[in-house]
């Protein structure tokens, strides 16, 4: 056990740093920047039953201390992910990967998870019930405790792998959703997905994103994310992955003090391709600075 080691739903991670879904593709692009085996694991691009192009462009814009996106779950579909992306990933990544799944019906989620359940490389299923950028699916399952529980139960039925439910911050009471997932059998919770927002171009007087609205991420959302991670950690007994604007080793420690077992890093990967490598390298010095011997001692602040 190294001082950075943490255990996520029964699987040991060399460190708690996990690139978040949608900011890391299927890993391959980043293997050209650094050895991605240095990561704890990573969560691959949100995968659906059918291939998707996503929303029309522009689907990315600048925000104060962050960005907004409305990509809309572009992915090649689960069958191509299994046939093409996972074999390619196997060449460059030798750890268990987190499979991120999205859907437009309960049956969709179950169908896609059942396919991925058979993949040796997949360690965890991260079930996204929080995408703000697709209509008639995604976030609608994450804003109602009953629907969230229904998806959780359906997925649990088709897989032996740990099921982590990824929650939306665009709700009144996130602890109610988290508890509903836990009661339905979820093995873990990850949060937060992006916060719904928009930008208008002063020059054209029109929304910058063709989808009008999108999801805000980056350092701007960190305090909001931290607050929600804190609340959820006190509402459930299952492990929680904290994410939202994490950019530095200090942010990782702060998330873990809020109670997170592991930490996902999203937008930072896009502005600095080596962000996660840097965060992992900086963790020991940051721990020394605050007198932390091992990350496992951070059971949350009081």
């Amino acid at each position: 056990m190294g001082r950075l080691t943490t255990t996520l739903c029964g699987i040991e991670l060399d460190n708690p740093v996990i690139p978040a879904s949608g900011t890391f593709g299927f890993g391959y692009e980043f293997a050209q920047w650094y050895d991605i085996n240095k990561l704890g694991t990573f969560s691959f691009k949100g995968t659906t039953r059918e291939p998707r192009f996503g929303n029309p462009t522009p689907r990315i814009a600048e925000c104060p201390a962050g960005m907004i996106n409305a990509v809309g779950l572009q992915n090649p579909g689960v069958e191509k992910v299994i046939a093409e992306e996972l074999p390619k990933l196997r060449q460059v990544f030798h750890k268990k990967v987190m499979a991120n799944v999205s859907g437009f019906s309960v049956a969709d989620y179950a169908w896609t998870c059942e396919k991925l359940d058979k993949e040796e490389q997949v360690g965890w299923l991260e079930v996204n019930i929080s995408c703000p950028n697709v209509h008639g699916g995604g976030m609608s399952f994450g804003t109602d405790p009953r629907a969230a529980a229904e998806v959780t139960a359906a997925v649990k039925k088709v897989t032996e792998k740990p099921v982590i439910m990824k929650l939306s911050p665009n709700v009144m009471d996130i602890t109610a959703i988290a508890k509903a997932c836990e009661d339905a059998g979820a093995d873990g919770i990850s949060l937060i997905n992006t916060l719904q927002g928009m930008r208008i171009s002063l020059r054209t007087r029109k929304p910058v994103l063709r989808n009008i609205m999108g999801g805000v991420s980056g350092p701007a959302v960190f305090p909001v994310a931290l607050r929600m991670v804190w609340q959820v950690c006190r509402a459930v007994k299952i492990p929680v992955i904290g994410m939202g604007g994490v950019t530095t080793a200090e942010d990782v420690l702060e998330m873990m003090m809020a109670g997170a077992t592991a930490v996902e890093v999203g937008a930072a990967n896009l502005t600095d391709p080596c962000a996660c490598e840097r965060i992992i390298e900086e963790l020991p010095a940051a721990m020394d600075k605050y007198g932390i011997k091992n990350l496992t001692e951070l059971k949350g602040a009081e």
Binding site: G22, T23, G25, F53, G54, I60, V71, T271
Partner: peptide, 27 residues
């Protein structure tokens, strides 16, 4: 030209449709 998130193929922000399938403008 397209608005980009990363510029190296990770975020799918700048995708377009072509005769030969979806392509990332940045990649």
């Amino acid at each position: 030209e397209e608005r980009m998130g990363c510029g190296f193929g990770a975020c799918m922000g700048c995708s377009c449709k072509t005769v030969t399938g979806y392509k990332r403008i940045c990649r």
